[in-house]
Design a protein around this nucleic acid. Structure first.
Lengths: 229, 229
DNA sequence: TAGTGGTCTAGACCACGGA
DNA sequence: CCGTGGTCTAGACCACTAA
């Protein structure tokens, strides 16, 4: 009948959210907390470490643990594969390859990704449908210097994301979200009006600083990305 | 000279990203790993637990640990206070209250937040500037049933976010991102054209299921939210 | 039912960094 | 300097669940 780290964490969390522990105030040290909860120091340590990971407290050797003044607000988003995303909302997923070509990197992409001018890129445009309605427009560049196999793979049946995830390891991913206005191309593919506001995710994937792929995923009008914490 | 959990984690991570451990393959159990790394089982456990938290492996009792087939792609975003966000990019921050009124909740908000029809809401519209250029338009509703003090507080000098973070505890936050088209009001306040695509964050904060505040934060044209992992 | 991860313990040593 | 958190250990019991 010992106190678990979950109980310790929940109790401290309660004291913080209910204002018993004011922002900026200092918590007892681990030894004292262990004694008062009647558990081992390692148990308190795990509870406190998770609270620190969650951004609720700040810990420093010798200085002790304090409740953060401005609780670090951080949100975690799942970035699912399109197919899973579509199927999880109960729709039928369909994929189509719109175009495929190979060309040297444009100046814009070279600057953005840090590519050599000699590098060749595989450029794919794909559509993802939910119940036969346009769901996502995918504009992707794959660095053939990093992924030579991509040149011979047939992307007409399998989406590049599915293939890349299984074939190519990566070490670093950068993601950004923004709003863009639909031009004629987007309007046609996503079945919306020119000028509509669309939600776009841009993602750059690297393997040890070498760019592997850059993609723009543009969602149909009205899409939301949601999370809670 | 023992093996640390960081070393164990880094070594397994390397095997995954370099393809030595294929997606879906099973890892040795903790006892065996501990033996092969020459450390205690608890050390291996911590390394594996963190890999699981990071979405790289899946663990199940009796079944063992496997490399995820589709590495769970999850991104963590910091949700900073506007003032910090502006100042961190080296600009001067300025705040202004645009309007303030108190009214019963509209049907739309009642449905969205799960409010009682008798609840009164404090409705604030605020502007946040960076170097005197519009940066963010804030449209906020505060539930006076949950936060009576808000009724008498003077929001003409201090932004509601700063005040709420310090005054009101919360237990649950829901965030969503989307793209919207600027109407005449947005165009005027954010100094952009009608029809421009704007990036908007919506956030609902609750304390034990009671809605505390709902806010729409609309950024100036061209804003991006970025992260890496 | 047996194997695996989940957790707790009591103790130890150490690194960091405030006073 | 020396208090605090960071980490490791060897062992133990337990909860879950696949076989």
């Amino acid at each position: 009948m010992s106190t678990t780290y979950r109980e310790v964490k929940a109790d401290i969390l309660r004291q913080i959210t209910q204002g018993e522990l004011a922002p900026g105030s200092i918590l007892p040290n681990e030894v004292d907390l262990a004694a008062s909860y009647g558990c081992a120091r390692a148990t308190v340590n795990r509870a406190m470490r998770e609270l620190a990971d969650d951004g609720l407290i700040e810990r420093r050797r010798k200085a002790g643990s304090r409740v953060r003044r401005n609780p670090l607000r951080q949100a975690k988003f799942n970035i699912p594969l399109v197919q899973q995303e579509v199927e999880e909302q109960g729709s039928v997923y369909r994929y189509a390859l719109v175009s495929r070509d190979i060309a040297p990197a444009s100046d814009r992409l070279r600057a953005r990704l840090g590519l050599q001018s000699s590098d060749r890129l595989l450029h794919l445009i794909c559509m993802h449908y939910a119940d036969d309605a346009p769901y996502q427009y995918e504009n992707r560049w794959i660095n053939l210097a990093a992924t030579p196999d991509a040149e011979t793979f047939d992307f007409s049946q399998t989406g590049p994301n599915e293939w890349l995830v299984k074939q190519v390891p990566f070490t670093d991913v950068q993601i950004s979200f923004r709003a863009i206005q639909a031009d004629a191309v987007y309007a046609e593919h996503l079945d919306c009006a020119r000028g509509d506001a669309l939600f776009q995710v841009e993602r750059t994937t690297r393997q040890d600083d070498e760019p592997v792929t850059f993609v723009q995923l543009t969602y149909r009008q009205g899409h939301r990305l949601t999370t809670r914490y």
